[in-house]
Each structure stands twice: as structure tokens, then as C-alpha cells.
Computed example of a mutant assay.
Amino acid sequence: MKKPLVSRLYKFSDATLVTTGKEKIAFMRRDAAAFTPFGISAALLSSLETAINTFSNTITDIEAVSNQTGVTASKDAKADQLRVAIRTVMARVELKYGTSNAVYRKFGTEALSQQSDSDLLITGKRVVRVGTEFLPTLTANGLTVAMLTAITTLCNEFENLIIDLKIKIGERDIAQEDRVEAGNNIYHILVKYTTMGLSIWETSDVAKYNDYVIYNTINSEAPEVATLPAV
């Protein structure tokens, strides 16, 4: 069965989750004596703090996107180099056979600039095969083994970059899912603990009660007191 999409339980930023979590832990340590009878120990608070610190230090989506963008730029630049190398060969083929000849069409380089990455890769490899086949008749027009070898090298480099990009996309998806799950776990525990704090101080201390309120909202408009998520 396919794993369901993981959604964030909290509406504010990850940075707010970190700062809010540390703030509430500080309040709970201040009020440790009131929490101890409910089983919320110093060890549990330290465990939550460790989880928050680990979460804070993990790679963010901004960094993952930057890594992915860098590989995409390299791939696109390599594709441009490959197109130039293919056109250099095809200029020799056109000079020899023209563009309507069956030999020219065998290279299959139509709409080169519009081809997808996979189609461009296949085209590059085909140009090398067909170019090698007709090399004896195209040598006089300037086609060389070095040109075909250069295209093979570019194809290999281009293919590696395509694979690298796929890996980066996959890594980003995994990292984001892991990050959402980690954030949700922190939020769930944090709400459970602060809900206990609200219960403790609800009828005895307004100031301390307010210390344990979490506003599950992006901004200060229409704040919503967070409730315990279902498990």
C-alpha cells in the first residue's frame, strides 16, 4: 500500500516551532515541581530539547532546492554543449547530402532545440553511430573521429547529470518527508506537555496559564489555541 502524503500539523514556520519549543521547555523547567506529578520529568524535557536541536540542524528545503537548482543548471549547460557539438556534425552532413536526403534524415536531429533530455541523449548517441557509419564519405567535408568522440563524452557527462538530478530530487523528497514527520512529532509532544500546563494553571495563575498557550497560526490575526493532535 502506498504511504499517504505527510502533512504538517502546525501552520507556523519551522523556525517558530524551534523557538516556541525551547521557550515552553524553559517554562516547564521553571515549573518542574508542578509537572513532576504528571510524569513529565527532566529526562523527558531533555529528550524533547534534543529532538528540537536535531530538527533545527537538519537541512532545510531552501538548501535542498539550491542543491537541485545547481545540478539542473549544470545539466542544462551540458545539454547546450551537446546540441552545439551535434550541429557541428550536421553542418558537415548537410554540406555533403543536403537536408532532404535519406542519409541526413537518418541522423534524426530534427527540432533539436525542442527535444527533451532523454530524446537529446538518444539523438547524441545516434549521431555518433550514424556518423561513424558514414565517416569515410564525410571526412572530405571536415567530419573527424575526434568530433564523434567529443559527442560520446558529452553524452556520458549529460547522462550522469540527468541521473544526478533525479537523485537530488529524490533526496529532497525524502528529506522533506523526514523533516515534516520530525516536526510533527515535536509539535505533538509539545502540545501534549503545554496542554498539561494549561490544565495546571487554568484556575490558579493567569500569567503562567498564558505561558503555555501555543498559537497555531502564521501571524497574529485571529489566533487559534492549538489542541492536541489525534494519534
Results as ranks from 00 to 15, higher is better:
1 M>Y: 11
1 M>K: 09
1 M>F: 10
2 K>S: 09
5 L>Y: 14
5 L>K: 15
6 V>M: 13
7 S>D: 12
9 L>P: 00
11 K>D: 10
17 L>Y: 00
17 L>Q: 00
20 T>R: 10
23 E>W: 05
23 E>C: 01
23 E>H: 07
24 K>T: 00
27 F>P: 01
28 M>S: 09
29 R>A: 05
34 A>E: 15
37 P>A: 08
38 F>A: 07
42 A>S: 15
43 A>S: 15
45 L>N: 10
48 L>F: 07
48 L>H: 03
48 L>M: 11
49 E>S: 07
49 E>Y: 01
49 E>F: 00
52 I>Y: 01
54 T>Q: 05
55 F>R: 01
57 N>D: 14
57 N>T: 13
58 T>K: 11
60 T>G: 07
62 I>A: 13
63 E>Q: 14
64 A>Q: 15
65 V>G: 09
66 S>N: 13
70 G>P: 04
71 V>Y: 04
72 T>I: 11
72 T>A: 15
74 S>T: 13
75 K>Q: 14
76 D>H: 06
79 A>I: 02
79 A>C: 06
80 D>C: 07
81 Q>A: 14
82 L>V: 08
85 A>E: 01
85 A>S: 10
86 I>M: 11
87 R>V: 02
87 R>F: 01
88 T>W: 03
90 M>G: 03
91 A>P: 01
91 A>T: 10
92 R>S: 06
94 E>P: 00
94 E>G: 10
98 G>K: 05
99 T>R: 12
100 S>L: 12
101 N>I: 02
103 V>H: 03
103 V>Y: 04
105 R>A: 13
106 K>V: 01
109 T>E: 09
112 L>Q: 04
116 S>Y: 11
117 D>M: 03
117 D>I: 05
120 L>A: 03
121 L>S: 12
122 I>R: 12
122 I>P: 00
123 T>R: 00
124 G>T: 02
125 K>E: 14
126 R>Y: 07
126 R>P: 00
127 V>S: 01
128 V>P: 02
130 V>S: 07
135 L>Q: 14
137 T>S: 13
138 L>F: 08
138 L>T: 03
139 T>V: 11
140 A>L: 11
142 G>E: 09
142 G>S: 07
142 G>I: 06
144 T>R: 05
148 L>D: 08
149 T>A: 11
150 A>R: 08
150 A>N: 14
151 I>L: 06
152 T>C: 04
155 C>E: 08
156 N>C: 00
157 E>W: 00
160 N>F: 09
161 L>Y: 04
161 L>P: 00
162 I>V: 12
162 I>K: 03
163 I>P: 02
163 I>W: 05
166 K>T: 12
166 K>S: 14
172 R>V: 05
172 R>P: 05
173 D>C: 06
173 D>I: 15
173 D>H: 10
174 I>H: 12
176 Q>S: 08
177 E>K: 15
183 G>E: 05
184 N>R: 06
187 Y>R: 02
192 K>G: 12
192 K>N: 14
194 T>K: 04
194 T>M: 05
194 T>V: 13
198 L>W: 01
204 S>Q: 11
205 D>L: 13
206 V>P: 06
207 A>E: 10
208 K>C: 03
209 Y>H: 15
210 N>P: 06
211 D>K: 03
215 Y>I: 05
217 T>Q: 12
221 E>W: 06
221 E>C: 03
223 P>D: 09
224 E>W: 04
227 T>F: 08
230 A>E: 14
231 V>Y: 13
